[in-house]
Design a protein around this nucleic acid. Structure first.
Length: 313
DNA sequence: AGCGGTCAAGTTGAT
DNA sequence: ATCAACTTGACCGCT
């Protein structure tokens, strides 16, 4: 059955994650800074618990965690360790409690580091800060039981073969906690599934197949073939991405921006019978997931995730 | 209370 | 050369 996933935030449900900026922190005293960060990290643990509970009660089987859940964690000046903040040990325990809740609910958690994580950059400082960010997300993933940290292939730099070799080498040099969760996703302007598959196969890193990106940047592989090849890369439940274009697919319109909702016609026929996670990238968030759930169910595609399902498997 | 400007970071492609 | 887009608005300071 299909496990639908919600990405990061809520549209209508009043669950909010807090954040701050390095500029705002800079204006505070050291004590004020630590207390502000501590408060945000504590509130975000509570918001994560609320998100897990919401998903579990609404048939949503997966949730993507915002990269800023511990805001500015790896910032060169504002960075910190959670346990060094006021009440840090107790906040850590709250994240570990989220992990237990996740397990009880049979929910799958993932991370999607933002665009600044580029493992194949020719600039060593960019790779170094990317690794720092991945190590931070892997640490939180460990606490809460997330099994996916998903990144893109990176830049092309006018020489994709070399760039892909750098990607492979950088992946192989990652710490185990990152490597065992890392996945790579085809994007909508640089790397297609067929370009990434040699790297994923060589490194043992699974491919997250984004069918909308594949439609924006095709490579000759059919959706069925890309789906099958991606599934082969997974040693656990495969995870794919789905979105619909805001401007439709008319000639001349940019197909890349995401729509508020998912057009059920965009759900690939070849996915109907699979046991996979499908993260829904749509601006209306949980509203879009619920709508898709109804639309797929009406088509006879089961996708309302229940706790019992995860125990029966 | 409401509103506009700002916020760590990379890369691409459209204008 | 500039800027929007990308997984995603939230927060702060001003009126």
């Amino acid at each position: 059955m299909i496990r639908l996933g919600l990405c990061c935030i809520f549209h209508e449900e009043p669950i909010r994650f807090r954040r701050t900026t390095a500029a705002a922190l800079k204006k505070l005293t050291a004590k004020e800074r630590d207390e502000k960060l501590s408060g945000i990290c504590r509130d975000n643990a509570a918001a994560l618990a609320a998100a897990i509970t919401y998903c579990s009660k609404n048939g949503i089987g997966a949730f993507r965690v915002n990269s800023q859940i511990l805001p500015l964690k790896t910032h060169p000046e504002a960075g910190y360790e959670l346990v060094d903040l006021p009440g840090g040990k107790e906040i850590l325990a709250r994240y570990e409690a989220c992990g237990q809740l996740r397990e009880q609910c049979g929910l799958r958690l993932s991370f999607h580091p933002d665009q600044f994580v580029v493992l194949n950059s020719p600039r060593p400082e960019v790779v170094a800060s990317s690794v720092r960010e991945l190590v931070y997300q892997a640490e939180v993933a460990e606490w809460i039981g997330a099994d996916v940290i998903n990144i893109h292939g990176g830049g092309g730099y006018g020489d994709k073969p070399s760039a892909l070799l750098r990607l492979r080498d950088a992946v192989q040099a990652l710490p185990v906690a990152v490597n065992e969760r890392l996945t790579i996703e085809n994007d909508d302007r640089t790397y297609t599934p067929s370009e990434l598959l040699p790297v994923t196969n060589e490194t043992g890193v699974p491919l997250v197949y984004d069918v909308h990106h594949h439609r924006c940047l095709p490579d000759g592989l059919s959706e069925e073939a890309a789906t099958a090849a991606a599934i082969q890369t997974w040693n656990r439940e495969p995870l794919f991405h789905l979105s619909s274009p805001r401007n439709g697919r008319d000639e001349g319109a940019d197909p890349k921006p995401h729509h508020d909702l998912i057009d059920p016609a965009d759900f690939p026929d070849s996915w109907s019978e699979l046991d996979i996670t499908v993260e829904v990238e749509a601006k209306a968030k949980e509203v879009a997931v619920k709508r898709l759930q109804e639309d797929l169910t009406a088509c006879g595609i089961p996708c309302a995730w229940q706790v019992a399902d995860s125990k029966d498997r």
